[in-house]
Write a protein that binds this DNA or RNA. Structure first.
Length: 509
DNA sequence: CATCAAGGCCAT
DNA sequence: ATGGCCTTGATG
C-alpha cells in the first residue's frame, strides 16, 4: 500500500541477495530515499530520521503554504517541512522514540518490534524465493527442507507491526491506483495495510477495566464525564508511562488517561462465567478495547502534535475512519463472518458499519468510561460524544435516551458483543450468496444471547427482547449520522478517499 | 564483543 | 535547516 514499501533484490538471477544483509531493500516510506535502518519505529532514510529528531526535539511548528497535502519525495522533501512531518507521523514514526533526556546509545522498547519485523521480512523473502523456485520448476525442498512454517503460503497472515500508515493509508499513498474499493482492500489486505498500534506492546495508556463488568447501576455513563487530557508540555509529565524503556523520558506527550475504572463493585456483579456459554465467553475474550483506546490515543496525538489548530470535523472523520478499520479488522477475524466470501463480507459490512460504530461508542462510554470530551495536545477541545453521534449534535438526546434504556437493562459487555454480531450477521441483507451461513451465525448468537440474559439476568423481565427492541433505535441514530456525513461529504467538507466515505458511497449505489 | 538505534557533529 | 557520518551504550 504505502508508497515506498518494496522488496527488491530477491528476484535476481540466482536468487542472490545483492547488497543488503537480508536481501531486503526498502525505500523510506516518507520520501522514498534509501533506508539506513530502523529509526523511531520503522525503516527510514537517514535524512528523515534526522528531520524527525530535530522536529520533535526542538518542538518545531511548521505551517504549510499550500493545502497540507504536499507530495513528499526525495527531491522535494525540503520544500514543505509541515507535510513532511505529517507524513512521518502518518507512516508511523514514533514520537515516543525521541528521548527527552537525549540519552545516547542503548535500546528502547521498540527493539523487540524491530526484531520481529526483520524476521517477518525475512520470511516474506523466503516465501518469494520459494515461489520463484517453484515457478522455475526447481525443487523447492532442496533449499528449505521441510521447515515447518516456511511453506510458500504459510504465515501469510502475520500481523504487521510497523511500517504501516495509521489511518490515511488510503489518502497518503501518492501514486496508488485511484480507488480500489477501500472496503475490499481493507478486507483483503488488512494484514498488510492496516495495523492499529500493536497490541502486544505495553499500551501507551492503561485501561484498568476489563471488559466483562456488568454495567452496575452506578452512574457510569450519564453523569459528569471526566475529561481525558492529551495535553502536556512538561517534562514532569513525560516520565509517567514507559517504565520499561531504557530512556523513560520520551519526548512525546504521554499523559492521556481515561479514568477507566469499570464499575466493578456496585450493583451489577459479573455473571459467573460458568453460566455463560462458550460462544459468548470467546466473544468477550476477543474484545480488545485497549487496542481501541490505543489507536484513538495515537491518532489524536499524531493529528494534533505540532499543530496550532486542526479542523475538528476532519479529525472526527479520521477517528471514525480508524474505528471503521478496526470494525473491519474485528469482523474479518470473527467466527461465522470470516468464512464468507469477500463479496458477502462487503455487503454485510456496508449494511452494518454505522450501527456498529454507534453501538461501539455506547459500549466504550458505558463500559470503559470513555469521556465525552477531550483536550487535544494543542489545547483544542474535541467532543468525543460527537463520534457516537456520527457528527450530529442534535442526536445527543436520542443517544442518551438509548444509553439510559441500556443501563436500565444492565447492558453488559456480553450483551454488547452479541448485539454487535447480530448487527453484522444480518441475514436480511440483500444479495448475500451464502445467506444460510449468515443466518446460522445470526441464530446461534441470538440463541446464546437469549440464554445468557435468561440465566444471568433473571431479575430483568424479558431483557432479550427489550434489547432487541433497541436495535431500530440505534439504527435510526446511525442512519441520520450517515446522512449527515454524506451531506458534508457532498459539500466537500469531509475528507475524501477514506474508508468512511467509501462506505457512505457504497450504500447509495 | 558485536550489534544497531539513538543522539551529536559539522560541512553544506 | 539539512543530511551524511560519527559516537554512545544497552542488549544478547
Amino acid at each position: 500500500m504505502g508508497a515506498g514499501y518494496q522488496i527488491a533484490g530477491s528476484m535476481t538471477a540466482m536468487g542472490e541477495t545483492p547488497d543488503s544483509k537480508y536481501g531486503i531493500e526498502e525505500l523510506c516510506p516518507v520520501c522514498g530515499d534509501k533506508v539506513s535502518g530502523y529509526h523511531y519505529g520503522l525503516l527510514t532514510c537517514e535524512s528523515c530520521k534526522g528531520f524527525f529528531k530535530r522536529t520533535v526535539q526542538n518542538k518545531k511548528v511548521y505551517t504549510c503554504v499550500a493545502e497540507r497535502s504536499c507530495h513528499i519525495d526525495k527531491t522535494q522533501r525540503k520544500r514543505c517541512p509541515f507535510c513532511r512531518f505529517q507524513k512521518c507521523l502518518e507512516v508511523g514514526m514514533k514520537l515516543e522514540a525521541v528521548r527527552a533526556d537525549r540519552m545516547r546509545g542503548g535500546r528502547n522498547k521498540f527493539g523487540p518490534m524491530y526484531k520481529r519485523d526483520r524476521a517477518r521480512k525475512l520470511q516474506l523473502m523466503r516465501q518469494r524465493q520459494l515461489a520463484a523456485q517453484t515457478l522455475r520448476g526447481g525443487v523447492a525442498s532442496d533449499m528449505y527442507p521441510n521447515q515447518p512454517g516456511t511453506s510458500p503460503f504459510a504465515n501469510i497472515h502475520i500481523k504487521q507491526e510497523i511500517q504501516i500508515p495509521q489511518v490515511s493509508s488510503l489518502t497518503s499513498s501518492p501514486d496508488s491506483s485511484p480507488s480500489p474499493i477501500a472496503v475490499a482492500v481493507a478486507l483483503g489486505q488488512v494484514n498488510s495495510t492496516l495495523n492499529q498500534p500493536a497490541s502486544n506492546q505495553q499500551p501507551a495508556l492503561q485501561i484498568v477495566g476489563i471488559p466483562s463488568g456488568g454495567s452496575g447501576g452506578g452512574g457510569g455513563g450519564g453523569g459528569g464525564h471526566s475529561s481525558m487530557v492529551v495535553n502536556n508540555q512538561d517534562n514532569k509529565l513525560w516520565a509517567q508511562a514507559n517504565s520499561t524503556t531504557t530512556s523513560p523520558h520520551s519526548l512525546s506527550p504521554k499523559v492521556f488517561q481515561f479514568e477507566t475504572v469499570v464499575p466493578a463493585g456496585g450493583g451489577g456483579t459479573v455473571p459467573s462465567s460458568s453460566k455463560v456459554s462458550p460462544l459468548i465467553r470467546d466473544f468477550v475474550a476477543a474484545i480488545d478495547d485497549r487496542e481501541w483506546h490505543n489507536s484513538l490515543y495515537t491518532l489524536l496525538q499524531n493529528q494534533t502534535y505540532n499543530q496550532c489548530e486542526v479542523d475538528l470535523f476532519e479529525l472526527m472523520c479520521k477517528v471514525l475512519d480508524q474505528n471503521l478499520f478496526s470494525q473491519v479488522d474485528w469482523a474479518r477475524n470473527s467466527i461465522f463472518f470470516k468464512d464468507l466470501k469477500v463479496d458477502d463480507q462487503m455487503k454485510l459490512l456496508q449494511h452494518s458499519w454505522s450501527d456498529m460504530l454507534v453501538l461501539d461508542h455506547m459500549h466504550q462510554r458505558m463500559h470503559n468510561n470513555l469521556p465525552d470530551e477531550t483536550t487535544l495536545h494543542n489545547g483544542q477541545k474535541l467532543d468525543l460524544l460527537n463520534l457516537g453521534l456520527l457528527g450530529v449534535p442534535s442526536l445527543a438526546d436520542h443517544f442518551n435516551d438509548i444509553t439510559v434504556k441500556l443501563q436500565d437493562l444492565k447492558f453488559d459487555v456480553s450483551d454488547y458483543i452479541c448485539i454487535k454480531f447480530m448487527l453484522l450477521l444480518n441475514p436480511d441483507v440483500r444479495g448475500i450468496t451464502n445467506r444460510k451461513h449468515v443466518l446460522e451465525g445470526y441464530e446461534q448468537v441470538q440463541q446464546a444471547l437469549l440464554e445468557y440474559t435468561v440465566t444471568c439476568y433473571p431479575q430483568i423481565q424479558d431483557k432479550f427482547h427489550k434489547l432487541q427492541q433497541l436495535l431500530p433505535e440505534i439504527h435510526s441514530v446511525a442512519v441520520r449520522g450517515e446522512e449527515h456525513l454524506y451531506h458534508k461529504h457532498c459539500n466537500g467538507s469531509a475528507p475524501t478517499q477514506t474508508l468512511l466515505m467509501e462506505m457512505l458511497h457504497a450504500k447509495r449505489k
